[in-house]
């Protein structure tokens, strides 16, 4: 094998590797959402987040508009503090937007749904969404049903 041919083939090899990395970074995983310069962040406090995880979807009317970047427990208010990052294309959510934790399907993963309110002003970077609705925890729900049944009878 003369050295020119092998150099060309090694070049091709490198190119294929870059292509593979591109696929892995852009299509398979979520490197796209890593660059924090794009978009803006909001926070929301929930009483209970259920099984919500970092990198969960944030959607409005079922359309993906951003993702959960951080979840911490706020020991002062005994609440979970969730940081969301939204794409900068969706920068017009009214101040009284509600953030709720939903489950996709019966057993699917949990995500945050945004339901826009009616205010004239929009949420800005680092604002807090004050209206939140916690996750529905199945055990608690069953417990409530049982309780109300026994209480009602």
């Amino acid at each position: 094998m003369n050295s020119r041919t092998s150099e060309i083939l090694v070049g091709l090899f490198m190119l294929l590797f870059l292509l593979a990395m591109f696929v892995l970074a852009m299509k398979v995983s979520n490197l796209t959402s890593l660059n924090s310069s794009e978009g803006y962040t909001l926070t929301a406090k929930f009483e209970n987040i259920g099984g919500l995880k970092e990198r969960a979807r944030v959607s409005a009317s079922g359309v993906r508009v951003g993702e959960v970047t951080r979840i911490i427990y706020d020991p002062e208010n005994f609440e979970a503090m969730v940081t969301l990052r939204l794409d900068k294309a969706f920068d017009a959510f009214p101040l009284d937007t509600t953030a709720s934790i939903y489950t996709s399907g019966l057993l699917g993963e949990q995500y945050i749904g945004l339901d826009p309110g009616a205010e004239e002003d929009f949420l800005q970077n680092d604002d807090e969404i004050t209206l939140t609705q916690s996750a529905i925890v199945l055990e608690r729900l069953i417990g409530q049903v049982l309780f109300s049944r026994s209480g009602g009878s």
């Binding site: 979520n30 490197l31 890593l34 993702e67």
Partner: peptide, 12 residues
Amino acid sequence: QMHSSVSFTHDV
């Protein structure tokens, strides 16, 4: 689904 569950830093 793949895109939202696979992390570049953690998995790839």
